[in-house]
Structures are given as structure tokens and as C-alpha cells.
Simulated scan of single mutants.
Amino acid sequence: MKTFVSSQAKCIRRMSDEAQMLRMKNNCESILNQEESNYTASEYVEFLISGKYKLFDILQDYIEITARIANVDLSEDNILFNKINSIRKNSLKKRFNNEVITEEESNFEKLMCYRHQAKVHWGIYAENSIKDILINDPEYILWCIINLDHFFIGNYVFAINVIRKSEYYLPAIEMNSIKRLIETEWKQEEGDCNIWGNFDAFEGDHLSWFNYNQ
């Protein structure tokens, strides 16, 4: 016998799921806030970049729940993934045919995860390291994630309270996550072949491609 579930029952169930996710998010946020309260701003950044962040699973849950509540897809089904992947493939095709590539295509070819010791070479913080920016103006990192095609960073930055409270937090999570997926796929396809080396970068800009969470 087929069970009939009314639209009202479905709505109640959905509200229950959302309420549960919201409770989980608030619980994760409380734990993250408590941890950060034990440090000064610079000490907390040092702690996060040490690679010994014991609450990483909590942070991952927080990121995923925040995205789910907002109906943001962090998988390869995200439209951004397909867009960036298409741009990248088009640029490779153009290079193979010795055609001129666009600035956007060139930027996405340089896509990489910036480590804390990397120095940026653009904007108001040129010559400053990622670490220094995180200490003095962490929201600028969100701007970089959203606005610079080649830039993404380890998820540890999303544990910082100032960043979590930013209106750009969710767009940055989405863009950062999709860029990570894209870059991982590219490296798997290309093997260890480095086609990203022909541009001006500071020493230390590149990292081990599979250690994003360190």
C-alpha cells in the first residue's frame, strides 16, 4: 500500500531538518568561538596554520552545514565548477593551437592554494604575507578568494570569528571550495606536470597540491 504524505507533513519534516541543522551550526559555532577566545588574534592565526588544529572536523561540519542551510552546493554539480572547468579547458585548447588566451583564462591557469608564508603581489597589501594579512585584516582574504581567479586558501581561515561573521563568508566558502575541487581535478589529470610556472610569483606561493588543510 502506497503511503501518502501530505504537503503539510513534508513541510513540517523539512522545518525539523532545518531546525536540527541550525542547532548543529550553533553548536559548532559555540565550540569554535570558545577555542578562539583562548588566544590573541596573532596567536590564533599561528595556531591555525600550525597544522595541529584539533577542531578541524568541527570546522568542516560548520562549513558544510552553513552551505546546506543556504542551499549552496559545494560539489562538482555547482555551476561555478562547470564554468571554471570550461574556461580552463578552452585555454588549454587555445595554447595547443597557439591562439591568444584571455586574461580570465590566463588567471585561472594560475589557480593555486596560497600558504600562510606566501607574499601577495597585488593591491594594498603587496609584499605582505598571507599570515600577516590574516592577523591584521582577515576579511581581505575573503575579497581575494571571491575576486581573484587564481586565489584560494586552506579552510582553516574560515575558523576565524571575524571571517565567520562577514557578509562575504558564504560566497567565499563557495568559491574557495569549488576552486579546491577544480585544482585537485586538474592536478590529477595533469599528473605532476607544472603548466602554472610561467608567471611572476614570490617564492613560497606554491604548496604541496594535496595539503590544503594544513
Results as ranks from 00 to 15, higher is better:
M1K: 10
K2Q: 12
K2N: 15
F4I: 15
V5Q: 02
I12E: 10
S16L: 13
E18W: 10
E18A: 15
N27P: 01
N27K: 09
C28G: 04
S30D: 13
E35K: 11
E36Q: 11
Y39M: 11
A41R: 14
Y44P: 01
E46Q: 14
F47Q: 07
Y53V: 01
L59K: 03
D61N: 12
D61I: 03
I65L: 10
A67G: 06
A67E: 01
S75H: 09
N78T: 00
K83E: 06
K83Q: 08
K83I: 03
L92K: 10
K93C: 12
V100H: 10
I101S: 00
T102F: 08
E104K: 14
E105P: 03
L111P: 00
M112F: 12
Y114L: 11
H116I: 08
Q117H: 09
Q117R: 07
Q117A: 08
W122A: 11
N128F: 12
S129E: 07
I130N: 01
K131D: 05
D132I: 00
I133E: 01
I133T: 02
L134I: 07
I135W: 03
N136D: 14
E139V: 08
Y140N: 02
W143I: 13
C144V: 00
I145M: 07
L148A: 13
G154H: 02
N155Q: 14
I160Q: 07
E167Y: 09
Y168C: 14
Y168G: 07
Y169M: 13
L170N: 00
A172L: 06
S177P: 06
K179G: 04
K179D: 05
I182F: 09
T184S: 12
T184A: 14
T184V: 12
E189L: 12
D192N: 14
C193D: 14
N194F: 12
F202E: 05
D205F: 04
F210P: 05
F210M: 10
N213F: 10
